[in-house]
Amino acid sequence: MLKQIRQVIKEQVEYRQLIYQLAVFELRGQHQNNFLGSFWQFLSPAIQIGIYWFVFGIGLRGGADINGTPFFLWLVLGIIPWFFIAPSITQASSSVYQKVSLVSKMNFPVSVLPTIRIISNSQQFFIMLGILFVITLLYGVKPSLYLIQIIYYICCMFIFLIAFGLITSTLATLARDFQVFLQSIIRMLFYLTPILWDTSLLVNSFGEKGQLIENILKLNPFYYIVEGFRDAFLGRAWFFDDMIYTLYFWIITFTILYFGSKLHIRFRNNFMDYL
């Protein structure tokens, strides 16, 4: 039953060296045509954070904080993982149909293509994570033992993205429309994940019904990851405090991986026919 999953995981582990080397090459090709080069990796997120802070923090909230956390800090804690998640999803889903013609002439494990994109994006993410750490220090948040959880949540994020990349890259190769569909889903999820606004507002304003809506929003796995980052940095809770949610997250990750690897292995020899 788990033959396909095992094969896909085996390929990821076996070719980790290859994944790393090719991820480095991906980075080298990017931003080559811009004068400011890799500086844009940080400039464009900074501009976006600035505008969201101004519109949502100052404009809509009038500078009020969220449960004692300054809005700017709260926003940055959610948006920095998102700046990694969103492009990784879209790029991972396009990776197979963009690259398969290059690699199909050799014995190359196609299942690592989405992973390569995710790993090459992670360089920027880890630098931003460092900046994030400095920002929390500047806001006077003392690092607590809870911060260790960051390792756990980063693992969650990578495993989920790799599993998700496997299924989306296969679907996008079979039908290119899926890519467009996925992009609009991502745009939607940006607003349905607590990045710009706190979902506990729903409970405050609508009571019982609001709680139900919040629970439905929690089904989104990115909710788990983004709130997890906040829990870790702000020292709010441990990931095992809400066992049901943690279990739910891993079950949905497993389900996606299960169907993703099944679909991938079934079609991988015929990807060239769908280009």
């Binding site: 139900l212 929690k218 049901i244 389900t255």
Partner: peptide, 14 residues
């Protein structure tokens, strides 16, 4: 594979 997901999802919502 889908049943546990459905159960957990239901647990989450309720």
């Amino acid at each position: 594979v889908l049943i546990p997901l459905a159960i957990m999802g239901l647990l989450m919502v309720l």
